[in-house]
Simulated assay, not measured.
Amino acid sequence: MRVLVSGASGMVGSALRAALQQNGHQIRRLVRRPVQAPEEVFWNPAEGDLHPSVFDDVDAVVNLSGSLVIQPPRRWTRSFIEELYASRIGSTRTLVEAMQRADAPPAMFLSQSGKDFYGEGGEFDESSPHQGGTVLSDLCARWEATAQAAPAVTETAFLRTGIVFGPRGGALGKLLLPIRAGVGGRLGDGRQFWPWIALPDLSKAMLFILENRISGPVNLSAPQHADVRTIVAELGRALHRPTVLPVPAALLKLALGRAPAEEVLLASTTMRPAVLLDHGFDFDYPELADAADWVAEELKRR
């Protein structure tokens, strides 16, 4: 299978590239700088610039583009929120419009989304409706609506991804810094639930979706639910660090701003990976303790 990947240099994109290569698939990378290797393809999503001929020899597209939702010291100003929307919706629109003009659109399109599609609460599966009411839930809904405009011949999957357990990047990466320094602890009261998935299972799941031609929404999270108190405690155990210094919700709101603190770190959501389980997907790290141990081992290698 020949797979075109946007966001291929990030934590998730790098893991996906490795999984694809290990399983004998060919990879082409979308880049925004001058092309430096045969597998690279130039695009400029800010300008809607992507030639439709790039799909002539591509079987599938995986869209992982999008800037980080928390970038201290930046706040969620109007301009920053517009940047969040543009980095996701603009890049997705560029891909979709190029597919629409292509003589041979790809058979599969995997477009990133997030757990925030559902809002707070749970237990959500892929049949649960969009609730709205927050910046991130609205962003995910619009993101998916843009991807839905892919050609009818292209089977499209919406990857509603939880917190990714990896050694760097994302919300967990920010949580790991104080824990590794021995000054970590729960966020707020710690009772909020975070859907989570280990990075190897995330890349394995995306490969599974491609190889099994699964379309529609897919929850990418482990089957085990965990609240932040438990997540922090397991990471502390695996890293042999104390986790007894909580960060009050008021301090998080002061440091990051009310909306990002509430929507990213303090919101509580549970979701079930029903589509993956119904298709027989086998998680390598279904238990939180095993995922925390994997993260700790990866950090030792760095």
Rank of each mutant, 00 (worst) to 15 (best):
A86L: 08
G90K: 01
A291Q: 04
D138Y: 12
A261R: 04
G236T: 08
P273Y: 00
R241S: 01
H240N: 12
V264G: 04
D56M: 09
T92A: 06
P178L: 01
A205V: 12
I209T: 03
S203W: 03
M108W: 02
K174Y: 12
F124N: 05
L252Y: 09
R302Q: 12
P52Y: 10
G132L: 11
L177M: 13
V244M: 11
H279P: 02
A19F: 06
I209Y: 01
S87H: 06
A60C: 07
A238S: 12
D59M: 04
M206V: 08
L95Q: 00
I70H: 12
F208N: 02
G280E: 02
A147Y: 03
L288K: 02
C140F: 07
D56A: 13
T92G: 05
Q21A: 11
V232G: 00
S137G: 14
L220Q: 04
T154Q: 01
L288Y: 02
L136V: 03
E40Q: 10
F117P: 01
P38T: 03
I163W: 00
A261N: 09
F42T: 08
W143Y: 07
T146Y: 00
N212V: 07
L95Y: 01
E298V: 06
G24E: 14
F124L: 14
S53V: 07
A18I: 15
R186E: 08
T92M: 06
A292F: 01
L20H: 01
L202I: 09
R237Y: 02
E120N: 14
A8S: 15
P260D: 07
T77S: 10
V54M: 05
F281A: 02
L235E: 03
L172A: 05
